[in-house]
């Protein structure tokens, strides 16, 4: 069952066509991986879906409702959470206060503060930052900052989560842990997840389905092991070496 879908999303910046009639769909409970070379429009697509950009044409349908062009705060209140490629912690606030802010607003807008703190604590616990909840973000490592981003996103109690390169810059061990975390929060919180990632190991490891963007157009969409064999995808993104390694 589709929870969110895009219909022919086009986004033009002056002369640059960043997205060209991109269709996508995310089913309930699914993990969809989005890959593509730098500049292929991945973050632009997320920005269009979450309301930071208005699409030039096309529609975003969420739970049978047209949400294209709504303001980000309205979109997040409908149950769509997102993390940013460049982490955006509130530097002057503690981890707990960071996440409490999200819980206070988010989907349940009339939430009393004690309840919000409780939700914040459970979100922090879920990403494994509970022993650092009184720290300020300045004292956290990159891996922990990425976890904080995720904690803030899930404190909104979303139904759909967009993760924009949540694992970039992590070492292999941290990446492994982050993959487990994504699978765990989907299970526990009944989430549908749409994520952008460059690390193929992650993409192959946790995606139910993969879609590929190239020059703003969708060039492939399907099961992970089918997509990586696709000639267009190999040519545009993965390169011959990837294919040879797989065959070897």
């Amino acid at each position: 069952m589709k929870i969110i879908e895009g219909r022919k999303i086009t986004k033009r910046f002056m002369g640059l066509l960043a997205l060209e009639e991109v269709d996508f769909e995310l089913n309930k409970g699914e993990i969809l991986g989005l890959i593509g070379p730098n500049g292929s429009g991945k973050t632009t697509l997320i920005n269009v879906i979450t309301g930071f950009y208005k699409p030039t044409s096309g529609k975003v349908i969420y739970k049978n409702r047209d949400i294209s062009g709504l303001a980000p705060y309205k979109i997040s209140r409908l149950g769509i959470g997102r993390t940013f490629q460049i982490v955006k912690p509130f530097m002057e606030l503690s981890v707990l206060e960071n996440v409490t802010t999200a819980a206070l607003f988010g989907k349940n807008i009339a939430m009393p503060k004690p309840k919000a703190i409780q939700i914040a604590n459970s979100s922090i616990e879920a990403v494994g930052l509970h022993d650092k909840s009184s720290y300020k973000p300045g004292a956290l490592s990159i891996a922990e900052l990425k976890k904080l981003e995720i904690a803030k996103a899930i404190a909104l109690s979303p139904d759909v989560l967009f993760l924009d390169e949540s694992m970039a810059g992590l070492n292999p061990k941290e990446t492994e842990a982050a993959m487990e975390l994504v699978l765990k929060i989907r299970e526990q919180r009944n989430l549908s997840i749409f994520f952008v990632e460059h690390v193929m190991k992650v993409v192959m490891g946790i995606s139910d389905r993969v879609m590929v963007l190239h020059h703003g157009r969708k060039i492939a969409d399907g099961k992970p092991n089918e997509v990586v064999k696709d000639e267009n995808v190999i040519k545009a993104y993965l390169g011959k070496r990837y294919k040879e390694q797989k065959n070897a």
């Binding site: 979450t50 309301g51 930071f52 303001a71 980000p72 705060y73 997040s76 209140r77 959470g81 997102r82 940013f84 955006k88 912690p89 509130f90 802010t101 999200a102 607003f105 988010g106 989907k107 807008i109 803030k152 996103a153 909104l156």
Partner: peptide, 9 residues
């Protein structure tokens, strides 16, 4: 931007 994505108008 982070504030907007948290449902803050």
């Amino acid at each position: 931007d982070a504030a907007r994505m948290m449902g803050i108008n």
